[in-house]
Design a protein around this nucleic acid. Structure first.
Length: 319
DNA sequence: ATGCCTACCTGGGAGC
DNA sequence: TGCTCCCAGGTAGGCA
């Protein structure tokens, strides 16, 4: 499933291959894929037709492309907002050639098995939103000022972001959360004021974004922290080490995922397959801990699962 | 405000 | 073989 590093890989692919191109037409094959767009498919298409993509920006797992209007050559104050959900992909097809094999299909016909939205570009290229489970979605959003006056996200220099993303915190790849910055200090303060388990706090997108179940477990393993450790009981140094652990895993995945697409298409699923092999905690129940050899255990957590080393990540004492 | 729970959705795999 | 059930999980929204 697309995690933050995969979304960043997609962002870079869109920045290289889609920015500065203009939308000619929009075809919504599954209404659900645009369910969060207030006007539905018809309005979404109307807003995109004739618009030119100005940049590719990301905050957490949200991705957006600010729109310029071809007619007045100015910024529209809107953006195409994309969330890949759990199975979403963005595929870019350049003009004419069939790009056989895209998404593992034979390239015949005019669509992938789970093609939900197809954008036709003015130069003949296409952008496909493919999503098996349709947890992901597209919408055209209004841009609003950022709360802290900083850039909206990675890939942008403008202090604006989609209204739908305004409540989402910066992520660990964002320069605004780099070690030593005011943003980082504020994050540490907020994390350490939470009276809940540290993993719940890590997953709270209003504190820090882009950390899902996989990266939380991997980061906790690296920092040797139990998921139920109350956030407010952790030292500043330990909390910082945990954030660094999560960030290191993300950087590692990004290094692998960044090689997963070529000039013709962006393939989200291509990245995760390689990265899966480097996981040391998530999904590793029964396999020896890479540090101490104790078998990794799987435990229920928030109607899902947590994986940890029972020796390196001891359960917190509680009264 | 904080903390916590549930619905949403679909296909792959396990179990019978 | 075909059926049922479980599982994955980010996010919004609603509750106390």
């Amino acid at each position: 499933m697309p995690e933050l590093p995969e979304v960043e890989t997609v962002r870079r692919g869109l920045a290289d291959h889609v920015v500065h191109r203009t939308v000619a037409d929009v075809e919504v094959l599954r209404e659900r894929a645009v369910r969060r767009h207030p006007g539905g498919a018809v309005d979404l298409a109307a807003r995109l037709r004739g618009a030119r993509f100005g940049a590719a920006v990301r905050r957490g797992k949200y991705l957006w492309l600010p729109l310029d209007r071809a007619d007045d050559a100015g910024e529209s104050g809107e953006a195409l907002l994309i969330h890949l959900g759990m199975s979403g992909q963005v595929l870019v097809k350049d003009s004419v050639d069939g790009t056989a094999g895209v998404d593992g299909t034979d390239g015949s016909g005019s669509g992938a098995p789970h093609l939900r939205v197809r954008l036709t570009l003015a130069d003949g290229g296409e952008v496909w939103f493919v999503d098996q489970r349709t947890f992901g979605h597209l919408l055209v959003a209004d841009l609003v000022p950022t709360a802290d006056g900083g850039p909206g996200g990675v890939g942008s220099s403008m202090p604006a972001l989609p209204q739908e993303v305004a409540h989402i915190a910066r992520d660990l790849l964002d320069p605004g959360l780099a070690v030593g910055t005011p943003g980082r200090a504020a994050l540490l303060r907020r994390l350490r004021s939470r009276r809940t388990g540290i993993k719940r706090a890590l997953l709270d997108q209003t504190l820090v974004s882009g950390v899902g179940n996989i990266y939380a477990d991997e980061g906790l393993w690296r920092a040797r922290v139990h998921y139920a450790q109350e956030a407010a009981t952790m030292s500043r140094a330990r909390t910082e080490a945990l954030l660094e652990g999560v960030a290191e895993v993300m950087h590692g995945a990004l290094a692998v995922g960044g090689t997963s697409f070529d000039s013709l298409y962006v393939n989200v699923n291509g990245a995760s397959g390689y990265f899966d092999r480097s996981l040391v905690a998530y999904g590793q129940a029964g396999r020896p801990c890479a540090r101490c050899g104790t078998p990794i255990v799987r435990e229920p957590f928030m109607n899902r699962s947590s994986f940890r080393c029972p020796r390196c990540q001891r359960a917190p004492r509680h009264g």
